[in-house]
Amino acid sequence: MLKDVSFGQYYPVDSFVHRMDPRLKLVFLIAYIVAIFLAKNFYGLGACLLVLVLAVAFSRVPVRKVLRSMKGILFLVVFTAVINLFFYRGEEILFSWKFITISKEGIIFSIFLVLRLFLLVMCSSLLTYTTTPVALTDGLESLLTPLKWIKFPVHELALIMSIALRFIPILMDETERIMNAQKARGANFESGGLIKRAKAIIPVLIPLLLSAFRRAEELGDAMDARCYMGSKNRTKYKKLKFGWRDLIGFLLVAALITGVVLLRVYLGATI
C-alpha cells in the first residue's frame, strides 16, 4: 500500500521534458496551475488536458506511472466531489432528500473539481518524474536567490528539501518493515474504529521517529566528514542553462494561458 505513493520519485530516462531547465519547469508548473484555475469552462480544461497529454507524451514516462500518482489522493478527490455534489446550492434541482440536494450545477461543479484536481496532481507528479530532486532544489534555490538579500538561508532550505525528498522512499520502506514487525506481534491496523486505528499507529510512529533521528545524526556526521561547511566556498557541479526546449515549453505554456483566457471570454463560464 505504501509503495503506491510515488510522489518524489524520479523516472530515469532521457527525454525532451527531462532536459528542460528545472527553473523553468517550476515556473511552468505554477503557470499551468494558474491556467487550470483560470479555466471556467470545459473547453479551457480540455486545452489544459491537451497540454498535459503532450507533456506526458514527450516525457517518455509511462502513462500508467503518471496515473498511479492519483491513487494517493483518490480518497480526497472522491470525498470533496461527493461533498460538493450533495451540498452545492444550484438552481435546477434534480433530487432532494432531507438536507441533501443534488442539482445540475452541483454535478457540473463536482466534475469540474475532480478534473482540476486530476490535472493538478498529474502535472505536479510529472515534474517530479522528470526532474531529479537535486535539479529541482537547484532550480528552487536559483529562483529564490533574490531572498538571499534579506539573509534568508536559501541554500540551506534547498538542501533540506533535497534530503527530505531523498529519504521519502527509505522511510517508506522502514514504515512498512515496522508495520510488518508489529503485525507479526499481533498488531491490527485494518479493523476497528477511527480512534482504535489511530492508536494502533503509535507503536509504528515512535520507532520510525527514533530511527529518523538516528539517520539524521549519521547523515550529519557523513556530511561533516565530506567537508560540508555550508554554502560558503561551495561550487556546483550542475550548471543550469536555458535551451531551445525551454523556449518551446515557454511558447506552449503562454499559448495555453492565452487560449484558456480567450475560451473563457468567448464561450462564457460554465461555473
Binding site: T132, V134, S162, R166, R215, E218, L219, A222
Partner: peptide, 14 residues
C-alpha cells in the same frame, strides 16, 4: 570515512 549504513551517508538521490 565510509560509515556503516550506506543509506545514511548518501546525500543525493542520483
Amino acid at each position: 570515512i565510509v560509515f556503516q549504513n550506506p543509506d545514511n551517508q548518501t546525500v543525493a538521490s542520483i
